[in-house]
Design a protein around this nucleic acid. Structure first.
Length: 269
DNA sequence: ATGACAACCTGTGGGC
DNA sequence: TGCCCACAGGTTGTCA
């Protein structure tokens, strides 16, 4: 479920509890995630110290003295801090035990997430990622240049991780609404000036969602176990058939590449 | 190179 | 109440 704001919320939530802590143990109850968890990971982690918690795209990168633990939350993953030991609940697949008695606990019903240990700063999964949407190298010129000749929709283009990372289904819908662009318009037929508006919309939506602690639809919780509050500010996602907040006409819901798309046929062109 | 689609999973909600 | 189907916040790999 997590998109970039939810991953960033998680990172900020766990960071103060894990940075500068030594890992004294790890319990892996279920190794069958998106990719199988490496057999020796428990041993690899023991004794190392976490020096920093970074994010790249939707990956959490826990830099340790001896390497980097790369975590993806998939569709249904969450991480939280336990201040004391608690019996594992259903789908609590991984615990990382810290030297202050705290636990970092990973829960993931659908098991689309992943845990990788990186010896260097480099992994194939990180190699072909596009720019971070909140940094300056994500701009209209980049989108414009990458989109020329593309016949697929601008929404699909925006959700392509080689173009820009971190924009999932919710925020793609929201950003396109804010920018006034129809999601089913061909990416190659959006003018540079409109990509300028879209870039601003993406940045605005994502930073707003981070400020609100992410979007909780049914079960997302940040590192502190609390839900996010951005759902109340969604303009289109999950509102098919309901009135547009801007012009009151009925929002249209369609399906693009098997994902729900909602837009206002009047406000978005 | 691009694009469409299946695949990996479990849980939930709606319709009947 | 219960069953079945569609759908859910992601991403990769395969095939045309």
């Amino acid at each position: 479920m997590p998109e970039l704001p939810e991953v960033e919320t998680t990172r900020r939530g766990i960071e103060p509890y894990i940075v500068d802590r030594h890992i004294i143990g790890a319990i892996i109850r279920e190794r069958r995630l998106r990719w199988p968890v490496a057999a020796g990971l428990e041993t690899t982690l023991i004794g190392t110290r976490i020096v920093r918690a970074r994010r790249r795209a939707k990956y959490l990168l826990l830099d340790c003295e001896t390497g980097t633990l790369m975590i993806h939350l998939g569709m249904s993953g969450s991480l939280r801090i336990l201040t004391h030991e608690e019996p594992p609940m259903f789908h609590d697949h991984i615990d990382i035990i810290l030297d202050n008695g705290h636990f970092l606990r990973y829960n993931d019903p659908r098991r689309f997430g992943s845990f990788h240990w990186l010896e260097s700063d480099d992994h194939p999964l990180l190699n072909h990622l596009g720019p971070e949407p909140l940094l300056d190298d994500f701009d209209a010129e980049w989108l414009y240049q990458k989109s020329r000749g593309r016949r697929s929709s601008v929404k699909q283009f925006l959700m392509d991780g080689t173009i820009v990372v971190g924009v999932g289904n919710i925020y793609a819908n929201e950003a396109l609404f804010l920018a006034g662009i129809r999601p089913d318009r061909a990416a190659g037929r959006v003018a540079l000036a409109r990509y300028n508006v879209l870039v601003d919309a993406v940045k605005q939506i994502l930073s707003g969602a981070i400020q609100q602690g992410g979007t909780t639809l049914r079960d997302f919780v940040g590192g502190d176990g609390k839900p996010g509050y951005f759902a109340q500010q969604l303009n289109v996602y999950g509102r098919g058939g309901q009135p547009c907040r801007r012009c009151e006409s009925a929002l249209k819901e369609i399906r693009q590449n098997n994902r729900a798309t909602v837009f206002c046929p009047l406000c978005q062109r």
